[in-house]
Design a protein around this nucleic acid. Structure first.
Lengths: 199, 199
DNA sequence: AAGGTATTGGAATAGACAGTACAGAACTGT
DNA sequence: ACAGTTCTGTACTGTCTATTCCAATACCTT
């Protein structure tokens, strides 16, 4: 029918996501997005409507990937639940150790970054984040309930509270990492957090 | 010798701090700062040199106040250390419940917000934050050591690790609150975190 | 090969941005 | 009262912002 796209939309979205992750929403200019994706202004606006729409899609893309990776770890039904939770925290520590900006600082998590930067004044972003948090909390609660049954997780607090705590711990790890904590320090935090979940 | 200031520098700094706290660094314009402080451009630039310098002072001002409030709670030598740590977490929960933006969302903590938004690409801000974190970690370690001695805090992990964990928990509470968690949910997190510190 | 349609690069737009220049106002010490 | 100095309101910079416009291009279908 007509002239086809010269670029891969998925790749462009991924590149945009990375810039937003590194610099945040406000500090990322449309020029930055052009540079990172290799696209011209027209192509970007033609494909993604606006900077804000692109950001929403990039955020959703990030959350999907990262939450999928988390649930993959948590769903390994062979191991005791506590092991899986421990593996989740290790994954978080690992990803913080890997994903670093030019200066050596950690990138943190685009989800946490966006909660902090935008959730208060951007209802659309807040809604996307809310949905992801609900999904992750459900996954956490599920493992923790299994742990309560297989005896690897404490039964003295209900799984809902433990799930919220786990979620806060993940955020705390992310912020600590962005604040300059190194791998061993993050490891200490993860280990200590596990004590609260132990039977 | 000459014309005196018509405004109180401390009050202006406080107003500027509040705007940065609510909107973040990038999203705050010099016009916003004029509106919030009630000052004209000239007065602001005359007194604070630049937006960035003003931000640094506002951040330092915030961290001083908030860390002072925390150490005040932690230094009450009469009570067992664990009680004081619990009081610290309650203070954090309380402040998150109080400080809310127009939409009802929590403000979080300007320190955490700045770690997330700027620490990776603003060495000056990163240095101010680093210093405050060190100071707070020292205060945490001190109480936790006292707790180890008075028996109210576990001796099975060293105070350094517990202090890092406590710091991460505070950040986690802040982010959870900005993410939409209400007071009782934050309370659950705080309670569960205390389990990791119990003997 | 021709017509129709979507994509593309580049220039243009209007407004916001941080920061400055300057002239006059307001105060103090003499 | 006056000189000296600092403050403050206004108007102004040049640069950057997100977004739009348009003409040229490239492709698919027929």
């Amino acid at each position: 029918m007509a002239r086809p796209r010269k670029f891969d939309e998925e790749r462009a979205l991924d590149a945009a996501m990375r810039v937003f992750w590194e610099r945040g929403y406000e500090a990322t200019s449309t020029q930055d997005l052009c540079d990172a994706t290799g696209l011209g202004r027209s192509s970007i606006y033609n494909t993604f409507q606006s900077k804000h729409d692109l950001f929403e899609r990039a955020l959703a893309h990030y959350l999907d990937t990262m939450t999928a990776a988390q649930t993959a770890v948590l769903d390994d039904v062979e191991r005791p639940a506590a092991d899986r939770v421990r593996a989740l925290l290790t994954q978080v520590v690992e990803s913080e150790a890997e994903c670093r900006i030019g200066s050596g600082r950690a990138l943190g998590c685009l989800g946490v970054n966006t909660v902090v930067e935008l959730a208060g004044r951007d209802p659309a972003a807040a809604a996307v984040l809310q949905r992801d948090t609900a999904r992750r909390l459900a996954a956490y609660r599920a493992v923790l309930e299994q742990g309560r049954r297989d005896g690897s997780i404490t039964a003295s607090r209900d799984p809902e509270a433990l799930a919220r705590f786990l979620n806060a711990t993940v955020a705390g790890l992310r912020v600590s990492s962005q604040g300059g904590a190194d791998r061993t320090e993050l490891e200490m935090i993860a280990q200590t957090a596990m004590d609260a979940l132990a039977p």
